[in-house]
Design a binder for these strands. Sequence first.
DNA 1: TTGATTGCAAAGCATTTGCATGCTA
DNA 2: TAGCATGCAAATGCTTTGCAATCAA
Lengths: 172, 172
Amino acid sequence: MRTKKEKFVVEKSILLEHIQAAGLRRTNQRDLILEIFLSTEDHLTSEDLYGLVHRKDPTIGLTTVYRTLKLLTDAGLAREVGFGDGKTYYEHHYNHEHHDHMICTECGRVIEFFSPEIEELQDEMASRFGFRPTHHSLRMWGVCAECQRSKADAQPAPSGAQPRVRVKTAKH
Amino acid sequence: MRTKKEKFVVEKSILLEHIQAAGLRRTNQRDLILEIFLSTEDHLTSEDLYGLVHRKDPTIGLTTVYRTLKLLTDAGLAREVGFGDGKTYYEHHYNHEHHDHMICTECGRVIEFFSPEIEELQDEMASRFGFRPTHHSLRMWGVCAECQRSKADAQPAPSGAQPRVRVKTAKH
DNA sequence: TTGATTGCAAAGCATTTGCATGCTA
DNA sequence: TAGCATGCAAATGCTTTGCAATCAA
């Protein structure tokens, strides 16, 4: 249950630097939240992360998780994403190469992908307008391969069981 | 003040067909909301549209605008967009060629653009994963040309006047 | 006449804020 | 010690829902 001693050293020092530069304060809550956030794979809401954090330290409040996730975003360690269900998801940002998302509207699966060509064309497009981009978000919604298959099989779709947007990840 | 007689005939018949196909009912409210939505250029929230509608017919409720905008989206006449301020914006969809957005984080200006090359690469990316896309959204945040200029002029930024996300449009 | 639609008020939900208390620097 | 951070409860802001009355087909 104990995390390896020297894990996430770089991320931790990034947070520390950001905190010091902004005249903020290091706290146990922030340490723990960062630790758990980094130990988890992708796409968490504040509530999701709160659930995990709460197991290790039931005294930490939901509000603090909200605030810390914003802090991590400012520090460049987290990135906000929305999948269209009204919630804000976070994923690691530092040292995780940038990527975009395909979202299956049947099962909620999220596929991450990256295309240098698209990135390049985006920059070109921006400079054509004299626009200096800081970040961007590309999302495609549709039906993933698996769901196409199961549809073809004419399996009577498990009706009633409304597929909530659930976040799984397929790595490129 | 009277709109030209035969304006938006096609859109109106699209809505009508959708309504009939779904066993729904045509109402004066829906007619008026569609009419005003189409007469307005781009990027309205339900509340925005409600304001406009309310001037012509103060009896129409906000809830109906919400519901109708969803209906128009289903009918393929409207498209939902989010610019990161927590609200849902709608823009015409039918007969308005697809485009993407650059959002200025200084002044809130929204620049619309379209790149066939990017579209093509997206489709290629999707098919590489066996993913069948239905729609997508590409947004870039950053600083627009105007705001870069006024910054360069070292004009003491009009502080205090927090630039709310305001929707203007620059056509490609 | 039937059942979809409307408008209002109330409820929902994710997120933010006020404030007294606690804790870092 | 000063003042940032925390946790709780309350507030917020957008959106949806319940329901009685209304209206289209």
